[in-house]
């Protein structure tokens, strides 16, 4: 009678340890670091937006530094994110320039995703860096495309030879859609109204043209959705911020 129980127990133990071993591969122990740093900073790839479930255009690059701020090669880095976010690779050692590069695939729900990069110090302490990525759902994605087509020339300062920004040419400077400090204070109705009827609708400059006869209602709604999701600081209600538990 005792044997089967023993068998089952061993099996469970084995299964459990197999599960743990899998976890460990993602953890630090399997990494075999050759050096340790004191701080972790973001080099590039933060604050990007992309369609839900897709890979961010540029990889996330973080750098591990020592106390003096010099880059440390061979230090361990591990990435974590909310459920559904994938990193390729999820952990590894910094390269010769002290950097660790990973491609980030977003989860399936639209919203903001908090990404955490961490490294351990010589003393075994974990230091973290928080970064953020924005996942655009159907509506926000459409808004982002419309923004590129109609609005970005005036509402974005970034200039390329192909698309010269018109921002500095305007007598009244518009706000960038990321300027949450200002735009978060405007209601959805106000945003929709200035987009549909132009600046004069809110006693603002006619340099903001009306789009109510060019875009459909749902397209203007999509633009509002886009403005909300890229706002920095984030727009309060009702979006969800996905962070790790």
């Amino acid at each position: 009678m005792k044997k089967p129980i023993a068998c089952i127990l061993t099996f469970l133990a084995l299964a459990f340890s197999a599960g743990c071993a899998r976890h460990d591969q993602n953890g630090f122990t399997a990494l075999k670091p050759t050096a340790y740093g004191a701080a972790i900073v973001e080099s590039s790839g933060g604050k990007q937006s992309a369609a839900v479930g897709t890979t961010l255009h540029d990889p996330l690059v973080v750098q591990v530094n020592d106390e003096q701020g010099a880059a440390v090669a061979g230090a361990p880095v591990m990435l974590q994110g909310p459920t559904g976010v994938q990193f390729e690779p999820v952990a590894g050692l910094t390269d010769s320039s002290g950097q660790f590069t990973s491609n980030v695939t977003l989860g399936v729900a639209p919203g903001r995703y908090q990404l955490v990069a961490s490294t351990t110090t010589k003393a075994g302490k974990s230091v973290e860096l928080k970064s953020e990525a924005i996942a655009l759902g159907y509506q926000e994605m459409l808004g982002s495309r419309l923004n590129d087509q109609y609005c970005a020339r005036c509402h974005n300062q970034d200039s390329t030879p192909e698309r010269v920004s018109n921002y500095d040419n305007l007598a009244v400077n518009p706000h960038l859609f990321t300027e949450g400090d200002t735009l978060n204070k405007m209601s959805d109705a106000d945003l929709a109204s200035i987009i549909a009827h132009g600046g004069p609708a809110l006693n603002k400059s006619p340099l903001m043209p009306p789009y109510g006869y060019t875009l459909s209602k749902s397209e203007m709604q999509a633009l509002v959705g886009y403005i909300r999701v890229v706002a920095d600081p984030p727009y309060g209600a009702p979006g969800i911020v996905y962070a790790q538990k």
Partner: peptide, 9 residues
């Protein structure tokens, strides 16, 4: 110049 703000573009 005023009502339609064409000089913006």
């Amino acid at each position: 110049y005023s009502k339609y703000g064409c000089q913006g573009c």
